[in-house]
């Protein structure tokens, strides 16, 4: 068993607070996801996600407020548009797009946060390490 390395980009207002809420309720989830706080999920440009994979992350998560609840009113509309395009781009470059998770978690949804983290960690654990798949790509 390997320990997948996952980076989670969380918006400051909903999802990061959702993670805090999970903590306050002492919900347990695997430690693999390292959270990076950004003002809004709209700040996450595709380049940042690609760069993270390039550094060897096995999975990347982008979590923001539910549509309609973005602290910056429509910042996450961009996220909702950008991320599916990015997923296609990942597939195109030979990266399984399931390695990128996009989800909406509100500040109150501690339980959802813990579930989302648990499920994504399990999903990534079931895949081979990202570095290995890339090696396979190269040798093909």
């Amino acid at each position: 068993m390997y320990e997948p390395k996952i980076i989670g980009f969380l918006c400051n207002w909903c999802s990061y607070r959702g993670a805090d809420t999970a903590g306050m309720a002492r919900m347990k989830y695997p430690p693999n996801v390292k959270i990076i706080r950004v003002p809004c999920s709209g700040r996450i440009s595709p380049e940042l996600v690609l760069r993270t994979f390039r550094e060897g992350a096995d999975g990347v998560m982008v979590l923001g407020c539910h549509i309609g609840d973005c602290h910056y009113s429509t910042g996450n509309h961009r996220t909702a548009k950008r991320m599916p395009v990015l997923k296609r781009l990942l597939e195109y470059s030979g990266i399984d797009s399931d390695r990128l998770a996009i989800n909406w978690v509100s500040a109150a949804e501690g339980e959802k946060f813990a579930t989302v983290i648990k499920e994504f960690t399990e999903q990534i654990s079931a895949m081979p390490p990202f570095a290995e798949t890339m090696k396979m790509e190269e040798t093909k």
Binding site: V38, G42, R43, S45, Y72, T74, R78
Partner: peptide
Amino acid sequence: GCGTCVGTCLPKSITLKHFTDEQIV
């Protein structure tokens, strides 16, 4: 300071202070 504009700028001319690409990377 939401940073939504940053990702739309193709020549990467917009920087969001305190959340620059450099800092996040």
